[in-house]
Amino acid sequence: MSPTISDLITPALVTVDLTATDRRAAIDELAQLLEADGRVSDRATYVDAVWAREEETGGTGMESGVAIPHAKTPAVSRAGIAFGRSAAGVDFGAEDDTPSDLVFLIAAPEGADDLHVRVLSRIARKLIHESFRTSLREADSSQAVVDIIQREVEL
């Protein structure tokens, strides 16, 4: 059975106060949420995989302040998305050097057919809409973030 968006993101996977200031630390901070929620079994391996992808693409940061680091690896036991909002923003290699303040870390297990890619493309498409980004920036709690994403990114 294919998962719905509510299986993929819960308030436990959201922080509206990302403390890390550099890219690798931000990825690790969000990966800890995925690990604590039982979705990532080997955090070090997972973070390395995400990092490799960042390096390969020159960064997943976009000029609108959004970043979508992601990886598909056996170190993920259950698919999930962690979301972090950073007050100062973190450099995710956006073309114009805009720091990313909205960071979506996507984890997909090996053999998750194209789930990984479908979630990513749904979110990427939504992120074009300024209203979606604004509501994420204005959400005052983890629950509010999850509600917004569930409402907007229905699978």
Partner: peptide
């Protein structure tokens, strides 16, 4: 060339516009 984020975002942006 890699990933799909930018191609999907460009698609959405063009559709919306």
């Amino acid at each position: 060339p890699t990933g799909i984020a930018h191609s999907e975002m460009a698609a959405e942006a063009l559709e919306v516009a």
